[in-house]
Design a protein around this nucleic acid. Sequence first.
DNA 1: GAGTGTATACTCGGATAGAATCTGTCCGAGTAATTCGGG
DNA 2: CCCGAATTACTCGGACAGATTCTATCCGAGTATACACTC
Lengths: 161, 161
Amino acid sequence: MRMSEGVEWGLHCCVTLAWLEGDGPVSTARLAASFELPAAYLNKRLQALVRAGILSSTPGARGGFQLARPPERITLMDVVAAIEGTDDVFRCTEIRRKGAGAVASGREFGRPCGISTAMRKAELAWRRELAAQTLAEVMAGTPASAAERTRRWFAAERTHT
Amino acid sequence: MRMSEGVEWGLHCCVTLAWLEGDGPVSTARLAASFELPAAYLNKRLQALVRAGILSSTPGARGGFQLARPPERITLMDVVAAIEGTDDVFRCTEIRRKGAGAVASGREFGRPCGISTAMRKAELAWRRELAAQTLAEVMAGTPASAAERTRRWFAAERTHT
DNA sequence: GAGTGTATACTCGGATAGAATCTGTCCGAGTAATTCGGG
DNA sequence: CCCGAATTACTCGGACAGATTCTATCCGAGTATACACTC
């Protein structure tokens, strides 16, 4: 079980877009170049973030992506849900009803099985923790030099293109 | 991202083995039949639980699997770790060092990136919750009729084979 | 200089292909209980 | 009745195949800007 790489990409791109706020939209190609990622594939993930309302995209020349709302109002849960989907990680397939359980009175299965609820409980703790952390808080924990360097890199890119 | 079905299988098998404690080892074939699962594949997962020290296996005729320790001392985390492995779900690939970050002073990357630590924090909450729940507690939440029915099913199997 | 048409630079979405992982099957080797045959 | 060999019923582990998901690429369509060209 592993989380898609797209989550890491999406989070880093959101942080970058936050640092570049006010410079107008940033194209997929430049974002991809800044992390050495495949542009077409990254674009698919950014589109998912747009559908989730985290980014906004502007088509046409000098178009691209920018944050749809301030980083204080974007949680890690938002980004993970947008890219990984909202399905439970543990999916109960109700094997308790098969075989030995097939002869049981249907009434016994009125409530979800204890295993399913226990797993869900742990998963909710994970989601709660993700929802408690905003992009702004994560950004606050990174050195200012990184933000500054990123801004310079994109400014340079813009001129010599 | 989804958890392997083997976790559900493993948990249900552990609960069943706990209910059948004292009846001696239970073979893969009978466990598989009781949930209508493919025996050979289930066996692989049970082996993983043995390697993790959760189950013990006895080879030879009338062999099979049984719990290696009481269900009070088996947590959901134990079972998940045995089957899914102990790798982090979110794996940081350090894309911050690529492209725009390549020119940065190496000193800036002394600490892990904020995104990585934030994701890890959420994951630890998940693991903590899994480790807090024992198999015995999960069993306590299931109706006694299910335990009784399971015991009867296995007793019947044993006689007419 | 204003208006128009064309080129350009993007996003968007689908189709598709390759790689990795998950699920499932099969077989040979090892081990212990059971059964059978000979003394 | 006892001992030993063959049979049986399991686990263990690897090799392998199919299905699903992840990663990646490509292309056509739509849209907005920039540029050039005409009047």
